[in-house]
């Protein structure tokens, strides 16, 4: 009896491992296919049957891909937008999230439902009118349409931070209030230091969103000197159709920073989602 249940348990465990390994391979193979193509010389990209392990390694694909188009310029442009939206997003969402978590006012619940309902709004319905508004302000071919909205809060981040703030014991703030601390100093000195898992989660999501965003830059930026990395890569596809090794080198360079940020932030990041997730 004991034996059979042990056998059954180890068979079950083996099945779990086999499935996990199969799915992990499916996750990783496209990345592998990208990196391996990025290191192949032109002739072996198009060898048939395809070469699974690239040899010799053609490292020069990387500098080549980076110099054919002004990638450094695109990188700087993307970085300007990322850093600006990060600042805007943190400032606005912390304040709004705190207000919904801790302060009481008439109309608060109605307002909160409006905040949540904006999550369901498709960007497509705002695309045309926002373009009309921003273009009448002369903001086309500037970074402003991509940056300014982040200073006014985002429903998902407000929800996430509110959930996190509500889980912080109130005693800390009460003690600060007795010491005569005002609201802003309470937020800066008490709330922010204990909420950094949530802050990092917001940062990673915001970086990820801005870095990967394509539709926004596509609509607003049409001078090459203003391009983001995503736009630059799209342009690159058009110009070098078939140069898969260079395209894959460029893709690798664009994906790497996001993968690294996720890798180093993941414990906090996944923890942040699990903690704030769907508790309420």
């Amino acid at each position: 009896m004991v034996m059979t249940s042990n056998v059954r348990r180890s068979v079950g465990r083996a099945i779990v491992y086999v499935l996990l390994i199969i799915f992990s391979l499916a996750s990783l193979l496209p990345f592998y296919w990208m990196v391996s193509a990025s290191l192949k010389p032109n002739y072996s990209v198009f060898s048939f049957p395809p070469q699974w392990i690239p040899w010799p390694l053609e490292w020069s694909n990387y500098p080549k891909a980076m110099t054919f188009v002004p990638f450094l310029q695109f990188f700087v442009n993307t970085l300007i937008i990322v850093v600006s939206t990060l600042i805007g997003s943190l400032m606005s969402n912390i304040l709004v999230g705190y207000a919904f978590a801790r302060l009481e006012a008439r109309g608060k619940n109605v307002l909160f439902y409006i905040v949540l309902s904006t999550m369901m709004l498709p960007y497509a319905v705002l695309m045309v009118p926002q373009y009309a508004i921003f273009s009448s302000l002369g903001w086309v071919n500037t970074f402003l349409p991509l940056i300014v909205p982040s200073f006014f809060g985002n429903a998902f981040f407000i929800f996430l931070l509110r959930q996190f703030f509500m889980g912080i014991p109130r005693d800390l703030e009460d003690a600060a209030a007795i010491d005569g601390a005002g609201l802003f100093s309470t937020i800066v000195r008490i709330i922010i230091p204990v909420s950094w898992p949530a802050m990092i989660t917001v940062c990673i999501f915001q970086i990820q969103f801005t870095w990967n965003d394509f539709l926004g830059p596509l609509i607003y930026l049409n001078k090459q000197s203003m391009f983001t990395l995503a736009l630059g890569l799209n342009d690159f596809i058009g110009q070098y159709t078939g140069s898969w090794n260079l395209l894959m080198a460029a893709s690798t360079v664009i994906l790497l920073p996001i993968l690294l940020i996720f890798y180093f932030g993941q414990r906090l990041f996944i923890g942040g989602i699990v903690m704030t997730g769907l508790k309420d």
């Binding site: 992990s24 990208m34 736009l231 893709s251 994906l255």
Partner: peptide, 16 residues
């Protein structure tokens, strides 16, 4: 590993 693909999206993933 299983979460990694959803970190990336957009043009680079489409290219890959």
């Amino acid at each position: 590993i299983l979460y990694l693909p959803s970190v990336v999206s957009g043009v680079a993933v489409s290219t890959v």
